[in-house]
Design a protein around this nucleic acid. Sequence first.
DNA 1: GTACTTGCAAACAGTTTGCATAGGC
DNA 2: GCCTATGCAAACTGTTTGCAAGTAC
Lengths: 138, 138
Amino acid sequence: MDSFEPTIQKLRSKGFKLTPQRLAVIKYMIGNTNHPSALTIHKDLKKRYPSLSFSTVYNTLNVLEEIGEVRPLYIFSEHVNYDPSVEPHVHFLCTECNRIHDIFPHETEGIRLPVGELDGHLVTSSQVILRGICRDCR
Amino acid sequence: MDSFEPTIQKLRSKGFKLTPQRLAVIKYMIGNTNHPSALTIHKDLKKRYPSLSFSTVYNTLNVLEEIGEVRPLYIFSEHVNYDPSVEPHVHFLCTECNRIHDIFPHETEGIRLPVGELDGHLVTSSQVILRGICRDCR
DNA sequence: GTACTTGCAAACAGTTTGCATAGGC
DNA sequence: GCCTATGCAAACTGTTTGCAAGTAC
């Protein structure tokens, strides 16, 4: 229960205020595995918060990114998708249904990614996008 | 020499015409390791082809993508970068200088990526973006 | 000669910004 | 009460589109 309490704490501790709009976005995002875009978030939340504006959604997403609670995914050219920041995982984009599936380490014996030094560069994070046909579309 | 002959062949074989503008973009892209954006391509080619328009650059990039000679990279939220499609490699984005470095398999003992089936999904391609500080900026 | 391509300008989509009002703490 | 956040509209950026004129083949 109240799995968004830590997020609220972090928000406040970094000097941001908790508004009903921000709380709504936090509740919407935490645990959400659909990798929604700002458009989708706004569309969905507008049902319950009719006055919610686009700029507030963007503002909140930028704040959540800043405090490390959300990660932008640049998978499509048209828009940014957002992923609640959890344990590291890779993304699988189905080219049929355009959905983004999460794949977690325990399912990914076939994947190994570098940390530390590689070819002289210092690697601090990695993002993997796999493409293909998802299990539902096959 | 004339390493772009195969590209021209492929272009023609798929029913596209070879125009001076397209040739210019092909020559600019083939072997280019800078992962330029459409803006950069246009800016650079405009010096030699002053009448070259944006829409022609975009048209040509889309054609080259269609025939598999160029691959769009969604690394930044703001714009698309283009990579001449060669042997599989991963990309390293330096968060200091914002340059994209190529890293090829022989340098990447630390990386393994899946092919075929994974967690029920059929994986056909993969894209890896590493982030950190590049060897020049360290 | 017949498509297809170009170049221009206008349209478009997603995101950001400016500013007056509202509201968290 | 102070200062940040909201909501609206307008601005902005990268990309796409419509169309008349030009050109590869």
